[in-house]
Design a protein around this nucleic acid. Structure first.
Lengths: 244, 244
DNA sequence: GCTGACATATTGTCCGACAATATGTCAATT
DNA sequence: AATTGACATATTGTCGGACAATATGTCAGC
């Protein structure tokens, strides 16, 4: 009787994938530090024992994630993935999943008040200064729909940055890219809520400067609920998929 | 006096980037639907008027985002990016940013109670059935550290899936991959809190079945705070960077 | 010391080739 | 009729070499 040999399904990974994974490991493990130049394609090809074409495909795999940037448009340099870079691939995924405004709003309801609360204890002088400048600018452009939208988005982004929590920044990246531009844009065009927006922002900012986390959180919640009412009043299709 | 001609700094994007972007647009705009096969490399090369190598590099750029998968290990097929696939690149980014357990915990504090609350009204019978099975299994393996950790992670994942909110799922993907395995793992090994975990899960599950969002949210908060206390009691380096 | 010419290095793109493998076709066999 | 096997075909993975464009380094000349 023949032995029952158990062959494990051999996983024939293409070479460019293997190479890519090796480079990726070298990067996240810190073996190649951020800011350092990646070896040239030819030397990489020699080291891994493959052709330059294969190396190039492996590099492309990583390039999209944002961990590789261009130093001088020639040599590649290891870079810290920026929020917006990573956010773009997440946003693509969400668009393909036909994510609705409602779903994004729910996430925003979870993250934005949290950001407000955290920012109270983490915001630096520089952060507060940027927020101040944003408020001034918002007051100036209150009647310009496009400029107002831009200022509104910037406020939320500055606030999130003031937490200095990279996990939070990445988690809310799709809000910047998908949710606010489309949803706030619609509300602003339909209702011209410049005044209401500014007042809410001012209260949030005030609470942060007063180091009052609860109040900051509460006002951000109000702000988001207010926004939701705007969507509903304008009958703007809260349950429809976001269109990129 | 010569006219002041204003040349805009021409941005010489490499061909593989342009091609990649065009394909990406075709995909997210739905021009190529999910499940459909991507044209073969040679036809793409003819259509875009570039070489196959260039096409291949363009494809690699998209492949990492998870919007392209392999149908039969040959032809490429357009696929819905899975949570874990997208999550992996986010996790890489977070690792490079030297994200701390504390930061991830803060995000978890924002998203997990939210998931509990939302799941009350969205969980299907199938979802609840899966949760039940998880609870039974958790009770069985309560003294096996590895199995308990796995069950604990699965509970939170099932809960999040029960919201059927893809934005929320993507936002919390790094928790599954980075936070829970390392942090919960440490707590479980140090304190053997199997009983406490199970009780908390049962309360959350009970609140969902009773359609009591406030209670579900509250218990999840307790659960997360409890976990944090565990970390602090064990003196397990809450403020250190997560090691991948 | 600065400038400009020149060689060098590196990437972007092209071309052609071949092996491995999945798919389709069709005849032979049971 | 259904299955099998042989064979041609299509497609991807990998190779090797080639050349243009451009950034970098070097060195003479002013």
């Amino acid at each position: 009787m023949p032995k029952n040999i158990n062959f494990d399904k051999l996983s024939h990974q293409p070479a460019y994938r293997v190479v890519s994974e090796k480079i990726r490991n070298a990067i996240v493990s810190g073996e190649i530090k951020t800011g350092e130049l990646l070896p040239t394609e030819t030397t990489l090809a020699e080291q891994f024992g493959v052709t330059r074409s294969t190396i190039r495909e492996a590099i492309r795999l990583l390039e999209h994630g944002g961990m590789l940037g261009r130093a001088d448009r020639k040599r590649l340099v290891v870079t810290l993935p920026q929020t917006d870079t990573v956010g773009r691939s997440v946003s693509s995924a969400l668009l393909m999943h036909r994510v609705t405004y409602e779903e994004l709003w729910q996430v925003a309801m979870g993250l934005e008040p949290l950001a407000s609360k955290l920012a109270c204890s983490t915001a630096t002088a520089k952060d507060k200064q940027r927020l101040t400048a944003n408020l001034v600018h918002t007051a100036e452009v209150m009647d310009n729909h496009d400029a107002l939208l831009e200022a509104e988005i910037e406020f939320h982004d500055l606030l999130a940055n003031a937490t200095h929590n990279s996990a939070l920044l990445l988690a809310r990246a799709p809000l910047n890219e998908l949710f606010y531009p489309a949803a706030w844009g619609a509300v602003i065009r339909a209702l011209s809520p410049g005044k209401r927006i500014l007042v809410a922002h001012q209260h949030i900012y005030g609470a942060i400067c007063a180091n009052n986390p609860d109040k900051a959180e509460e006002w951000m919640k109000k702000h988001m609920l207010d926004f939701r009412r705007g969507i509903e009043m304008g009958n703007l299709g809260f349950n429809e998929p976001v269109k990129g």
